[in-house]
Computed example of a mutant assay.
Amino acid sequence: MFGFIILVGIGAWTLSRHPAAAAAGVPGAISEKMDKLWIIAQDALHDKKYLRAEKALLTILRVDERNATAYNRLGILYAKQQAYKDAVECFEIAQSLEPSASSLHNVGLIHYETGDYDKAALAFEQAIEMDDSIPARYIAYAKVQEKRGKQKQAVEALEKAAKIDRSPQVLHFLAEAYDKLGEVDLAKQLREQSTIMRAPTPEQIAQAQASRAAHAAHNVQTSHNTIRSRVVR
């Protein structure tokens, strides 16, 4: 489930936003109740108590029907339950209230999961246009282009991802894309780079050896102290 690995990550980011901000301009007593509802929704989502989370979020939306954050969280909740139609609707409402690359990205992921690759591509293109600094957007867009049979566009998207984040994982995706395009030599070079990047540095090896030596010395000292204690007794 490629898409929802990223969706969960974005969901976690969304949940980290301070809930009290949504209650701005709301009278004190209601604002306090809203804060409690946000906490209930967040805890319930974390504990996978989806019905409880849904009730809390819907109650928030009855008070503040233009709360984009609540719609985003509700969309994440529905996506986790594979209620994709409801999830898309929530993300689209959130997008209309408060335009956001994350909402568009989530819409794209859901269209990807349901096999509507043209709509997924459009959503990712719009998300990238709003925020082109996230490598995951290009990776997701590349996966969609592969499904559409557009391997060259997939490679171009992954090359842009690699410019932002030249991590072993991104290089692995790009190497696979080069293979599919017939660029075997380029794929081989990237895999070699990825292997080198994954290998521990001399400093890391030295630190690991020092740590093991210190741990062994501690165990020896502890053993000696135990023996001495028994002798004294």
Rank of each mutant, 00 (worst) to 15 (best):
Y78C: 01
D35M: 05
S211G: 04
I227E: 02
Q126T: 13
N67S: 07
Q95R: 14
E146F: 11
D185A: 06
H172R: 03
V232Q: 03
R17P: 00
K163P: 04
Q81P: 04
V144Q: 03
D116H: 15
K188A: 13
P27K: 03
H105E: 15
A24V: 05
Y138S: 07
I196P: 04
A175E: 08
S16R: 02
W38N: 08
A23M: 10
F91K: 09
E32Q: 11
A213S: 11
E192K: 04
K49G: 03
R17V: 03
P27S: 09
L97C: 12
K36T: 05
I134R: 08
V144L: 03
A154H: 10
Y138V: 02
G115V: 06
P200N: 12
P19R: 09
L61P: 02
I76Q: 04
D116E: 15
R62C: 03
W13G: 11
N72M: 08
V107G: 04
I60M: 12
D47E: 10
E146V: 10
L58V: 01
A199D: 12
S229C: 01
K55Q: 08
M1L: 02
R198P: 07
E183D: 11
Q126L: 15
Y138E: 06
T59P: 04
D185M: 05
Q126W: 12
A217E: 13
R52G: 00
M197T: 10
Q82C: 11
A120F: 07
L77S: 01
A68W: 01
Y117S: 07
V63C: 01
A44I: 02
Q209R: 15
K48G: 02
D116W: 13
V220C: 02
D43V: 03
A44W: 03
I30L: 07
P99K: 10
E156F: 06
L104K: 14
L58D: 01
A187W: 10
A83H: 13
M1E: 08
D132A: 13
A177S: 06
M130E: 15
A214F: 11
S31L: 08
K150S: 12
Q207Y: 10
D43G: 00
A23I: 05
I6F: 01
E146C: 07
D185P: 02
A127E: 12
D165R: 06
H215Q: 11
Y50R: 00
C90V: 09
Y71G: 00
R148A: 04
K85C: 06
Y178S: 02
V63Q: 07
E89K: 15
T222P: 00
S133N: 09
A53P: 05
I205N: 06
R62Q: 13
M130V: 10
A140S: 15
A199M: 09
P27V: 05
G9R: 03
E129T: 14
S16D: 00
A140D: 13
P168C: 05
P200I: 13
R191A: 14
R17F: 02
A140G: 06
A187L: 11
A79E: 09
R198A: 13
A56H: 03
I40R: 08
K147E: 14
A213F: 10
A199F: 09
